[in-house]
Write a protein that binds this DNA or RNA. Structure first.
Lengths: 348, 348
DNA sequence: TTCAACAATGAAAGCGTTGTCAACCATTAT
DNA sequence: ATAATGGTTGACAACGCTTTCATTGTTGAA
């Protein structure tokens, strides 16, 4: 049984398809009696217009594509939620493109990122949002960057927390460096002198900024960021665990650790716990991102909020403007916020 | 600057659009020289076919709609990941429909659920997956159920963990009752006699099944499930906190608590910690769902895994069959698994 | 040499909408 | 009575693609 179309409705109502279209979209006056007849038929057949056909004609789909590296990382659902709340009210709907690689192959992830870019363009998404992902690893002039820039010429494209220099890409991002400064200063104000930085990938621009913020703040306070105390290599709980153990093996131990993200902080906390260290009495910990878990751990994690939700909302708004006003968006910076909870205290 | 179309390519290559289409889709033999010319032009203009037009004709979009209640709840990204991994290999792409209500209004959520159902049908999604949500609250014959059933007649529709009786809806689900039995038996085997159940909504079929599994197992072991020890009212961390406090105020306290989900368990754990109770020495805890955070808490949470990822994969596979074979799917049950970690121990 | 088979192509008919344009009718103003 | 207004309506041309059908050469077999 084929779906009914405007033609079917029109035929049975003895009107033209144009009229049917008019009553559906309220786009021109229709005599009350015919309107009612049409409406009745629509009801009777539960007619639902084919959005593909409509979009084909109108050249707009009301769909926004979101490309992200791993939906399982709680950071992303959070910004998605912000995105959704704002975009929904504007009538958009989402395409979810998770580039996670099953086997952890980062090349595969790269390929997927550019595949999705193409798919979204072919499917005529009204706009594209890219969050995180390999682009943070890419250098200006690299293939991926070029692809993204090219895509950006075809459809409004917004980078969230992407750190691409210049290039004419619009982005909205939290100021990672400022966040790192906030966190580091907090630790220093508490009286810590021996502070380590753990996690992330030094090659990625966001990690780099966090490290820079950390180092700079240490130096501003006349402190030294020791090389053996800044360890990068991942964003996971496991990373945190293994790095704490490495730190513990060193002749001298830090009294506080600033972690590249909350997951790493959780890992550190767990390893510390196993090693018989009390947080925050024996070791202060501050995370980054303020994912929901951060307030669920025991003790609750002091962290810096990247305002994912706000970033998401802002992104939706900005993208909407790019789509409707057809103007290139302006880069937007969101100020992070330090959230002091229970995992930090003065050193013994 | 308008996007280039097959016509533009055809014109410049001095061939018909049919030929262009043929080289794009490899759907009929084309002379090598013309194929190359066309390919070259496609490359030159970075031509990307309009998927809307194609879908309009082919009557397939390769899009699957996923309706879920709140992407921020870590349970859902997990099944989404399973879904994605399986569906991706089959060439599908996802529509994300989060029905979360900003103001916590459950009627609004209901409305949104049925709105999305319509949107997905209009956008010609090849299939629809509904996870969790209000449908668990609905009774057979209610409006929402009818709407879902009607939608299911128009497009392959699969319920994940939905507990609708009969009705001709296809579903794939984890056996909640069995999971509850596993958890309860584990506690009993450890030597607990005084066990409470906390969390969920009694009105929702999934909660009900968990409670039934709990009660039944208690009785099978000659134990009694006391009314004042089975408390429902939510799925959040806060729920867990407030309910533990309520339990603590009672003249007699349970030595173990079976929680309706992991989030509630976390809440209980936090409240217990505040109250000076050690988990698991003073209080054993088992959760439900096995969200990622379950293995991150201190102590790590004993829980029952609903195999979200497997359920997701299974759903993708099942839906794919419904779409391609055009056959009604068979209900599929996934067996849950008890995951013993650190939050349970024999009572003192 | 002739016919069948096949490779290579183009014309044109959709797919289900929307919007433009012109036509029609009934009022109302002149 | 006639022209002008404005509310209603239908025909039809897009939108960009795929596929069917028919047509043209070619080539191998009879």
């Amino acid at each position: 049984m084929k779906p009914v179309t405007v033609y079917d409705i029109a035929r049975e109502a003895n009107v033209s398809v144009a009229t049917v279209s008019r009553v559906i979209n309220n786009t021109a006056p229709v005599k009350k009696s015919t309107r009612e007849k049409v409406l009745e038929l629509i009801q009777k057949y539960q007619f639902q217009p084919n959005a593909l056909a409509r979009s084909l004609f109108k050249k707009e789909t009301g769909m926004i594509g979101v490309i992200l590296p791993d939906i399982t990382n709680p950071f992303f659902p959070e910004v998605l939620a912000g995105l959704d709340q704002e975009a929904r009210s504007k009538g958009y709907t989402f395409f979810l493109c998770d580039t996670v690689s099953t086997n952890g192959n980062s090349y595969e992830q790269y390929v997927r990122e550019s595949q999705y870019l193409n798919i979204l363009i072919e499917k005529q998404a009204d706009g594209i949002i890219m969050i995180g992902g390999r682009i943070n690893l890419a250098r200006p002039g690299s293939d991926l960057v070029n692809e993204v820039v090219e895509a950006g010429k075809r459809v409004p494209l917004l980078l969230i927390n992407g750190n691409l220099p210049g290039e004419g890409l619009t982005r909205i991002y939290a100021d990672e460096r400022e966040g790192a400064e906030l966190a580091t200063q907090h630790l220093i104000d508490l009286g810590h002198r021996n502070i380590a930085f753990v996690g992330g990938f030094r090659k990625m621009s966001n990690t780099l900024q966090r490290i820079q913020g950390f180092v700079r703040t240490m130096e501003k306070n006349g402190l030294q960021a020791r090389k053996e105390w800044v360890l990068d290599g991942g964003f996971s709980v496991e990373t945190g665990k293994s790095f704490l153990n490495r730190l513990l093996d060193l002749p001298e131990r830090p009294t506080a650790i600033f972690c590249a993200n909350d997951l790493v902080a959780i890992g550190v906390m767990k390893a510390a716990n196993k090693a018989g260290l009390q947080v925050p009495q024996d070791l202060s910990l501050v995370g980054f991102d303020d994912i929901p878990y951060a307030s669920n751990s025991i003790p609750e994690l002091t962290t810096v909020s990247l305002k994912c939700y706000d970033v998401g909302r802002g992104a939706a708004e900005l993208l909407h403007q790019m789509i409707t006003k057809n103007k290139v968006g302006k880069n937007t910076k969101i100020r992070p916020e330090l959230i002091v909870r229970e995992s930090t205290a003065p050193p013994k």
